[in-house]
Design a protein around this nucleic acid. Structure first.
Lengths: 184, 184
DNA sequence: GTTGCCTATGCAACTCGTTGCATAGCAGGA
DNA sequence: TCCTGCTATGCAACGAGTTGCATAGGCAAC
């Protein structure tokens, strides 16, 4: 229900085509709102029909034409209204937590490599976040409102990854303890 | 795609009816996997048809009859196989983060009360987690494998809430800084 | 020179998840 | 007495999200 709003924010930050948006959703925006190109194209058409965004056909040489969208007045009004609505409770889907509880009825050791893979990918993500922070928000630089808000969201991502890494270490230690005593 | 597995884990921990499962998904399991009673009933029927679970009709007095489900052999096998598969990447839906970035194109002050409401509900959840931890896992008690794994999942929830509270304070401070300088 | 990848958009079919409603007996309070 | 709420299950319709496939030109590598 809020993909429209995520797209609007992205188009306000920078106009772009459906394809470009899909790539953004693979990178920056996708950190907190995922979407495939199918969803994006479909929602873009609906948003254009509703007047939330305006499209401009752009011919390119050596590449297919593209439709560049940008946020229109009604879109900004809709975003403003949405901002003032309370957020609906998020639906949680924490598969690893389910697996950890499931491991009690199977071999806890079977989860170790899985958790280690998670640990690696979260460590890599943290490194990327930290590099992005140094690049975009170097210490002591003056930031405008938009940058301040982007930075606080990024700090949230960084703290989330740090917390997750520490927890995964805790999980690994627990699994090792259980398999060590299980094979005694 | 993994609601089946979450239900299986819950039934292995304790057999129960669809209604009872729905209530568990409002409480413990629902912390990391949400589901409505509609989803649960539909999936239960499919799982029974696939032989993953077995149902037993239980007559009650003063209450409607219920069907009590428990995990069957094929269900345990399926769970074991699933445990050994890599988890698919989770789809992230972090509405508040989208709103924070959206606030750059509107009034950041409009978000303050929303973030404060979030803060309160996360503080309440943390308190419940900590109370549950003291109740179920008092310091120095000997735990079996199942309890150890439940505890490490709970510790994850606790650390997540702590991290989130600290971040929400960071968000509030940022919003206040922006509105203070904005109205100068 | 053919194979594979990138840009760019889209259809069709499907599954998953949500919402509203229905049934039905019992318990408790206004 | 009527209204509300709880236990217990379910149908029907809809909307959101996923998956597979299609088109179509250009580019680079082998």
């Amino acid at each position: 229900m809020a993909l429209e709003h995520a797209i609007l924010v992205s188009l306000l930050e920078q106009p772009g085509s459906g394809y470009e948006l899909a790539r953004r959703f693979d990178r920056s925006i996708g950190r907190f709102w995922t979407a495939t190109h199918q969803q994006i194209y479909r929602v873009l058409r609906r948003m254009e029909a509703d007047g939330w965004i305006a499209a401009e056909e752009v011919a390119q040489d050596g590449r297919p034409d593209k439709k560049v969208y940008s946020a229109a007045g009604p879109g900004r009004v809709a975003l403003s209204g949405w901002l003032r609505e309370p957020v609906e409770p998020e639906t949680v889907r924490h598969e690893l937590a389910v697996k950890i509880r499931a491991a009690a009825f199977d071999d806890p050791g079977a989860l170790v490599s899985e958790v280690e893979r998670h640990r690696e990918s979260h460590a890599a993500l943290l490194a990327r976040y930290l590099a992005g922070e140094q690049r975009d928000f170097p210490a002591g630089s003056a930031l405008d409102a938009r940058q301040e808000l982007q930075h606080v969201v990024l700090r949230g991502g960084i703290e989330y990854e740090r917390m997750t890494l520490a927890w995964l270490d805790d999980v690994l230690a627990t699994l090792h303890r259980l398999t060590a005593s299980g094979t005694d």
